[in-house]
């Protein structure tokens, strides 16, 4: 009797949670009209925003894939007293409020910032409020994701394979290229796809460094606040579809792996 009661309680909670989580999606679909949505998306300005988002997210993901993989490798195979602290430090952007991350990037790379000032004074290079700033902000936020994916990928490679490689005369670099990377490919790919989805959806940090530039999330915010539901609906649906596809891809890769 008690078991049945518990089962009924769980079912009820699942239904309530389902209602709660589906309500924003239902609301979006209810608000979205095909005619308005498509005409808004085909607008030149909106198209530019989509392209900017895709390009910056791809660049940030590419950079994060390289740097995150190297960091993941380092923290998997070079464990020492300090590495735990260092790994926690590199993971900070995962839990840091994105607006704080953006603000700190401003402090570091702004025209009067720690690195930004000498860059501007020496090379007349300004990073903030350019496309580079968008890439930088997205890179800052998604690199820890990639690092974690790489760490878990390398940990899954049996220790004896790495030892076998070394005993056969391969140094660390050859072992990394010939053994670790090929065996970690599916998890690294899933990590990169997740990082891309996170980068394209990044709002807080990007908003702080974007200036007049806009990405999809910034555009949604601006249009929603300005009462332009057509563009906000269209772009939101685009992100929902993109996120869904990404999750499906990650699941498929996970199952195959």
């Amino acid at each position: 009797m008690k078991i049945y009661s518990f089962s009924a309680l769980v079912t009820a909670l699942v239904m309530i949670a389902g209602l709660f989580f589906s309500s924003p999606f239902v609301a979006l679909l209810k608000s979205f009209t095909i005619a308005d949505g498509f005409s808004a998306l085909l607008n030149r300005q909106v198209m530019m925003v989509v392209i900017t988002s895709l390009v910056t997210a791809l660049l940030a993901t590419g950079l994060a894939a390289v740097v995150g993989t190297i960091l993941g490798y380092y923290f998997t195979f070079h464990k020492n007293a300090g590495s735990r602290w260092l790994k926690t430090f590199f993971s900070l952007p995962l839990v840091l409020p994105p607006s704080a991350a953006g603000y700190m990037l401003l402090l570091a790379f702004g025209r009067y910032g720690l690195i930004g000032a000498p860059l501007y004074q020496t090379f007349s290079v300004q990073i903030m409020f350019t496309v580079s700033a968008l890439v930088l902000a997205q890179f800052f936020v998604v690199t820890p994701l990639m690092m974690q994916a790489a760490s878990s990928a390398f940990q899954q490679v049996p220790d004896s394979l790495v030892k076998a490689s070394h005993s056969l005369g391969a140094g660390e670099f050859t072992t990394f290229i010939k053994v670790l990377l090929p065996l970690s490919k599916p998890v690294l790919l899933a990590g990169a796809i997740t990082a891309f989805a996170r980068a394209i959806g990044e709002f807080g940090a990007t908003m702080m460094v974007a200036g007049r530039l806009k990405t999809i999330p910034i555009m949604i915010y601006v249009k929603a606040m300005g009462g332009d539901a057509g563009v906000a609906d269209g772009l939101s649906l685009l992100l929902v579809l993109l996120s869904f596809t990404v999750l499906m891809l990650v699941n498929v890769i996970g199952e195959r792996h």
Binding site: S160, K163, A164, L168
Partner: peptide, 27 residues
């Protein structure tokens, strides 16, 4: 020094021939 492992430690993404040649390729 050559090492033969208990769990064989063959590289699963390489065929037997590639496994055997791994050390010679590394050298």
């Amino acid at each position: 020094v050559g090492f033969v492992f208990q769990d064989y430690a063959l590289f699963p993404h390489m065929n037997a021939g590639e496994n055997i040649l791994f050390g010679l390729n590394a050298r």
